[in-house]
Design a protein around this nucleic acid. Structure first.
Lengths: 156, 156
DNA sequence: ACGGAGTGGTTCACGGATCAACCACTGGTA
DNA sequence: TACCAGTGGTTGATCCGTGAACCACTCCGT
């Protein structure tokens, strides 16, 4: 790794553009959800996963796996969401170590509103800006990158 | 915004893929820089901008504008970088309110090594995974999204 | 059945980001 | 020239994310 091939003009534009877009887009999404719905993007993801699960409940570690969050992060975040009345936690019957997390009715209402907002934002900032062909290529690109990241991760 | 058009199969894949890729990619970049070079991605960006500036020095607020950082964030981050010996700060001659930030020799060495790592990572995870055509489309897509975000931002 | 490795969660200490309040200085206006 | 609105930057309170240490429980091998 002493002298890697530098990025040419086009590669440079693609890479810097991607980095800048990432920053801007996540800031936008988070800001919209916060101001319009009172949920952080993190809150949103938790509620989204829970409300998609059967009975609106998941084991803590399953939620963590799906979100790819540190377990300490999940634990602390759930504590805050619990104190806001968005979720509840109880010990698992099946495994006395574990906890089961459930969306509350309030949580369901919030996520329903937030999901509408989220879809509108996704369209507004990205989906509706692109042609069919660009959308297809975007899928190809993100698939390739994620596969590559997974491979690099597995290798290390 | 009571009933927005939902995302179809393809749009869904593109949007979720994009979100997931963003998370994975920034985690990867940050992790690589940290473990291989001892710099966070934030440190990297500060040093990159400084070392590209003439004389390796910039007014604080200019640096802030380029990074699009809160001024308090910049101030605190620079304090930490200063105490690590990566940058120095002095009052501006021209404007006694202001500060001028300068990369140190140690900072230059680190950023030189980190830039190599960064380029290698960019290639490894993204650039080298894509065809010429995909790279071109990626530029188009990111340009469109950033323009849209800028427009939305200006409108609000 | 029991001892120990492994799993599921929580807690703590710390680094980093945000927001509001604040101070120092500038530059235009009366 | 004396004011004061605006600009450049720092500080402090608070929130969020991470990693390590820790506790409770499970499950496997003997």
């Amino acid at each position: 790794m002493t002298e890697p091939r530098w990025l040419d003009e086009q590669e440079q534009r693609a890479w810097r553009g991607l980095m800048a877009t990432q920053e801007g887009l996540s800031a936008f999404i988070d800001r919209q959800l916060r101001t319009r719905c009172g949920l952080s993007h993190a809150d949103y993801q938790v509620l989204a996963h829970l409300s998609e699960a059967p009975e609106g409940r998941l084991r803590s570690f399953e939620l963590g796996d799906r979100l790819r969050w540190e377990k300490s992060r999940l634990s602390q975040h759930l504590s805050r969401m619990q104190s806001r009345g968005l979720v509840t936690r109880e010990r698992s019957q099946a495994d006395q170590r574990g906890a089961v997390v459930t969306v509350t009715a309030a949580g369901r209402e919030l996520i329903a509103a937030a999901a509408r907002q989220h879809v509108a934002d996704a369209r507004d900032a990205v989906v509706d800006q692109l042609t069919q062909a660009e959308l297809r290529t975007l899928i190809t690109i993100t698939d390739k990158v994620r596969r590559r990241l997974a491979a690099l991760d597995a290798a290390s």
